[in-house]
Computed example of a mutant assay.
Amino acid sequence: MRTRLLAATLTAFAAVSLAACSSGSGSSGTAAGSPTTPPAATTSAPGTPTPGATGGTTGAPTTAAAPAAPTTPAVPPAGSPDGPASGSASPGAPDAPDTPAPPKPAPPADAGLPAKPGSDDTVRLVAALDAIDPAIVGGKPDQAVDRARNQCQSMYQFPKDRAKLVELANQRFTAPDHPQGFGTEKAEKILDALRATLCPPA
């Protein structure tokens, strides 16, 4: 009888203990089931968009990159090949004045003076002058040859000034009866005769 009462008591005690445990576990579950602290928001790096609730970006401003610092040109060291060498001529310097050309040498005194003609050329010259006027030679062939040679030199010096040559011929070829020359017409004929017989071609 005592055994049954002891068993019943233990059973009741076990039931009460079980109920208490169940109640405590429910409280613990409630406490355990209390709202938990939401996880900390993931920190996004500056400039990185954070996804929103609707899947879009939050539009956080993006940090602009800092501008690059200007580069200072390197200064070439003294004596470097990039810089102008000391003592070198400056570009654009005026050239030295040209040296004046030496003066043209004067022609020799006998320029254009023909050599004395031989006997045959002398005969031809005298015949050409006698054809113009026998008084031009006047029996003095050597004198006529000298005057003719001087006139040839003048013809060499003034090849294009016929008026001057006519004047000189009228001054050179004179005679006792013609101290002022034989006139312009005969002086021109003398020029033609000298060019054909004694004077070199122009």
Score class of each variant (00 low, 15 high):
Thr3Ser: 15
Thr3Gln: 15
Leu6His: 10
Ala8Lys: 08
Leu10Met: 09
Thr11Ser: 13
Ala14Trp: 10
Ala14Asn: 11
Ala15Pro: 03
Ala15Leu: 15
Val16Lys: 01
Ser17Glu: 09
Ser17His: 10
Leu18Ala: 15
Ser22Leu: 14
Ser28Asp: 11
Ser28Gly: 12
Ser28Ala: 15
Ala32Glu: 08
Pro35Val: 07
Thr42Glu: 12
Thr43Met: 10
Ser44Arg: 12
Ala45His: 03
Ala45Cys: 05
Pro46Asp: 10
Gly47Asn: 10
Pro49Cys: 12
Thr50Met: 08
Pro51Asn: 02
Ala53Ser: 14
Thr54Gln: 11
Thr54Cys: 10
Gly56Leu: 13
Thr57Asp: 12
Gly59Asn: 09
Gly59Met: 05
Ala60Ser: 13
Pro61Met: 09
Thr63Ser: 06
Thr63Tyr: 01
Thr63Gln: 06
Ala64Thr: 15
Ala64Cys: 08
Ala66Ser: 13
Pro67Glu: 07
Pro67Cys: 06
Pro70Arg: 07
Pro70His: 06
Thr71Phe: 08
Thr72Gln: 06
Ala74Pro: 04
Pro81Phe: 01
Asp82Phe: 08
Pro84Asp: 05
Ala85Arg: 07
Ala89Tyr: 00
Ala89Asn: 02
Ala89Lys: 03
Ser90Phe: 10
Gly92His: 04
Ala93Cys: 02
Asp95Tyr: 04
Ala96Gly: 04
Asp98Arg: 15
Asp98Asn: 12
Asp98Gln: 13
Thr99Gln: 08
Thr99Trp: 03
Pro100Arg: 09
Pro102Ala: 14
Pro103Phe: 00
Pro103Val: 03
Lys104Trp: 08
Pro105Gly: 06
Ala109Asp: 11
Pro117Thr: 04
Pro117Leu: 02
Ser119Thr: 15
Val123Met: 09
Ala128Ser: 07
Leu129Pro: 01
Ile132Ala: 01
Val137Asp: 08
Gly138Asn: 05
Gly139Asp: 01
Asp142Ala: 15
Val145His: 05
Asp146Ser: 11
Ala148Leu: 03
Gln151Trp: 01
Tyr156Cys: 01
Gln157Phe: 11
Phe158Cys: 08
Ala163Asp: 12
Ala163Tyr: 05
Lys164Tyr: 13
Leu165Asn: 14
Val166Gly: 07
Gln171Met: 13
Arg172Val: 10
Phe173Pro: 02
Pro176Asp: 09
His178Cys: 02
His178Asn: 10
Gly183Arg: 02
Thr184Trp: 02
Glu185Leu: 10
Lys186Leu: 07
Lys186His: 04
Ala187Lys: 00
Ile190Met: 04
Asp192Leu: 11
Ala193Pro: 01
Leu194Ser: 01
Leu194Gln: 02
Arg195Gly: 15
Ala196Arg: 00
Pro201Thr: 09
